[in-house]
Amino acid sequence: MSTASASAHAHINTSMETASNSSINTTPVNTRSAQFTPQQHQQQYIYSPTPVYMQSPVQLGSQMSLQGPPHPGNPHQISILADHDIQRIVDSLKISLKDEINAIVNVAIQTQVQPLKDELTHLRAKVIHLEGEMDAANQYSRRNCILISNMKELPEENTNDIAIQVAKEGGLDITPSDIDRSHRNGKPKVNKPRDIIVKFVSYKTKHDFMKIRKQLRQRKSQAYINEHLTSFRGELAFQCRLLKKNPKSPVLDTWTYDGNIYIKTEVKGHMIRVNTHNDLVQFGYNPNQSMN
């Protein structure tokens, strides 16, 4: 090898060694002795010739540090998060997830639960309508019937004869041929006579019989005459009578006609037809408390 060639080779080796020594900091970093105070920045950086981000988290004093991947600009940069920073991130995630969950639940309610509620409301309204139709049909089947109450019950009695006797007491003449059938209603009672159900052959006879109620009251008859109402309408009429007796209620009078129930709140006012219990709420009826 010539003298010039050897000199050039030695110069290249010297330059590479100098560049290598200047680019690598061989001073070891003691990460365990590093101390951080609250006055310092929330992010601290440690420089090391080896990629410490591949190591497990290290304990820095009383704080647990998280080591992230190296920054593109510096392959040996490590980000340190304090405990309160981690807690702040966790709280922020909780709020974010809570809002997202609430949004998902609200969407589910609107898309799935609400249609079910609407269908349930529709079905309830349909049931109420069908029950009303059934009650109306049941009441119509009793169109020619009346109830005679407070008549002494005898072992060998004839209920047709009792009905004819009550009619004569009120000034109405009827014959056995006007009566389709009659009988006591329900099981025998100890201290109270059962009502007598009378079904007439024609609606006209039943209508004429209902007209003698006023004459019976004037003559102080022991008999009481009422229409044969369904259970629902009978209870509704009973609530109307309770309102009439209540001094706090505006109901002045109540009666039935052809199975329908009416009330009056003014002496010369119009009569009001009552179809359901809800119609009585405005007059003082409380569905949760019986009025005495």
Score class of each variant (00 low, 15 high):
residue 1 M to I: 13
residue 7 S to Q: 13
residue 9 H to A: 13
residue 11 H to D: 13
residue 11 H to P: 00
residue 21 N to D: 11
residue 21 N to E: 05
residue 27 T to I: 13
residue 31 T to S: 09
residue 33 S to I: 05
residue 36 F to Y: 07
residue 39 Q to D: 13
residue 42 Q to H: 10
residue 60 L to V: 14
residue 61 G to A: 08
residue 69 P to G: 02
residue 70 P to R: 09
residue 74 N to A: 12
residue 75 P to N: 00
residue 80 I to K: 00
residue 81 L to T: 08
residue 84 H to M: 10
residue 85 D to S: 15
residue 86 I to L: 11
residue 89 I to M: 15
residue 90 V to E: 02
residue 93 L to K: 00
residue 96 S to H: 01
residue 96 S to F: 06
residue 99 D to Q: 09
residue 102 N to V: 01
residue 102 N to D: 12
residue 102 N to P: 00
residue 103 A to S: 15
residue 112 Q to G: 11
residue 112 Q to D: 05
residue 113 V to K: 15
residue 121 T to K: 10
residue 123 L to D: 04
residue 124 R to C: 07
residue 129 H to Q: 15
residue 129 H to M: 05
residue 129 H to V: 07
residue 133 E to W: 07
residue 135 D to I: 04
residue 138 N to A: 15
residue 139 Q to K: 01
residue 140 Y to Q: 10
residue 140 Y to E: 04
residue 142 R to F: 13
residue 143 R to K: 10
residue 145 C to A: 12
residue 146 I to W: 03
residue 150 N to E: 07
residue 158 N to S: 10
residue 162 I to F: 06
residue 164 I to T: 03
residue 165 Q to F: 09
residue 170 G to C: 07
residue 174 I to S: 07
residue 177 S to C: 01
residue 180 D to Y: 13
residue 189 K to M: 09
residue 189 K to C: 02
residue 190 V to A: 15
residue 193 P to H: 01
residue 200 F to M: 00
residue 205 T to I: 14
residue 215 Q to T: 12
residue 218 Q to P: 00
residue 222 Q to G: 15
residue 228 H to T: 00
residue 229 L to Y: 01
residue 230 T to Y: 05
residue 230 T to N: 01
residue 232 F to E: 04
residue 233 R to N: 06
residue 241 R to V: 06
residue 242 L to F: 02
residue 243 L to F: 01
residue 247 P to M: 02
residue 251 V to W: 00
residue 253 D to N: 10
residue 256 T to P: 04
residue 259 G to D: 02
residue 262 Y to C: 06
residue 265 T to P: 07
residue 269 G to M: 13
residue 274 V to Y: 11
residue 277 H to V: 01
residue 281 V to K: 14
residue 283 F to R: 08
residue 284 G to D: 04
residue 285 Y to M: 09
residue 287 P to C: 10
